[in-house]
């Protein structure tokens, strides 16, 4: 059966609409991600020709103490970021009251999220300053002498992560506030009639309804922890002596400072692999929910 010309046009339009965005995304994003893996199998200074080295970049990673520092720091980031969803939920519960000034308070709680990470970084460098920072002030108040957290290889990563936690908590709070607004009023009412209170109410009636939101908050916090870069660059540049690098930052350093693009690409690939675990977990759940919806 011949389709009319018009009908053909109808079929072609979607393809034409899809093409520009899709092509750009495929070329710049997808192709680049694949190419990174290819580069990781080479030695390359970024200018000259690439030489095939097989898996030796990865072998080198295994023996590189800096790599293990980065990996350990990534684990610390993940662990500390687990705090973001519960803290966000706590603040969301705190401000979810219909009292006159609460709207403004909510907006102000969101604020850290709107600030650029560079801004947050600068603010926290100031906060941690051992001579005049807020932290120092607190220590003085208790008669202790303040530590220079950003120059301590034990504390530096924690200090940076806590700074990054600030906007992340705000983000989780937004998600939970939205979740709290979609709670089924009748189920809450039923819970009240059954005399559920406080913790019981939260545990048995509210949280089950927030499962979807909590999942998203958790997934996004984990992914956010793994991709953190800006704040390390601004606050410590990976220092002191490389003790606060993570895979993302080390990758950047190896490539752009040491001109070891192949090695950098190998680091990026490892990061990619770790991230993929979380992304696949997230995608599978998302698709499952989409199907069942």
């Amino acid at each position: 059966m011949l389709r009319t010309r018009r009908s053909l046009r109808h079929r072609a339009t979607p393809a034409l609409l899809l093409a520009p965005g899709l092509l750009l995304f495929l070329v710049v994003i997808v192709f680049s991600a694949l190419r990174t893996f290819w580069i990781s199998l080479h030695a390359w200074d970024g200018f000259g020709p690439m030489t095939w080295v097989g898996l030796s970049n990865y072998a080198e990673l295994w023996g590189d103490p800096q790599f293990w520092v980065s990996l350990r720091n990534n684990v610390i980031w993940l662990a500390v970021f687990l705090l973001a969803p519960p803290m966000g939920l706590a603040i969301a519960l705190l401000v979810n009251q219909k009292i006159r000034t609460m709207r403004l308070a909510k907006s102000l709680f969101f604020m850290p999220l709107v600030l650029s990470t560079v801004t947050v970084g600068v603010i926290f460098v100031w906060f941690y300053d051992p001579s005049y920072g807020l932290l120092a002030l607190l220590f003085h108040a208790f008669g202790a002498s303040p530590p220079a957290v950003l120059s301590s290889d034990t504390w530096v990563t924690f200090a940076v992560v806590f700074a990054a936690l600030w906007p992340q908590v705000a983000f989780c709070m937004i998600l939970f506030l939205a979740g709290l607004n979609t709670l089924d009023e009748e189920i809450i009412g039923a819970g009240r009639v059954d005399n559920a209170r406080g913790w019981q109410m939260l545990r048995h009636i509210v949280l089950p309804q927030l499962r979807q939101v909590a999942f998203i908050a958790l997934a996004i916090s984990m992914i956010g922890a793994l991709r953190s870069f800006d704040i390390i660059a601004v606050m410590t540049s990976g220092g002191p002596f490389g003790s606060s690098t993570n895979l993302a930052y080390q990758m950047y350093q190896e490539s752009l400072f040491s001109y070891r693009f192949g090695y950098g690409a190998a680091l990026a690939t490892v990061l990619f692999a770790i991230m993929m675990v979380f992304i696949v977990w997230y995608l599978l759940r998302l698709l499952r929910d989409e199907r069942s919806a």
Partner: peptide
């Protein structure tokens, strides 16, 4: 509806969550 729509959708999500460093070298080179 078209074949591969779900795959495309998944690619968009995955790409969006990827650490930026994964694209860094090739994008800079490009």
């Amino acid at each position: 509806r078209f074949p591969g729509a779900t795959l495309l959708f998944a690619t968009f999500i995955a790409g969006n969550f990827m650490p930026q460093q994964v694209f860094m070298i090739p994008v800079r080179d490009l």
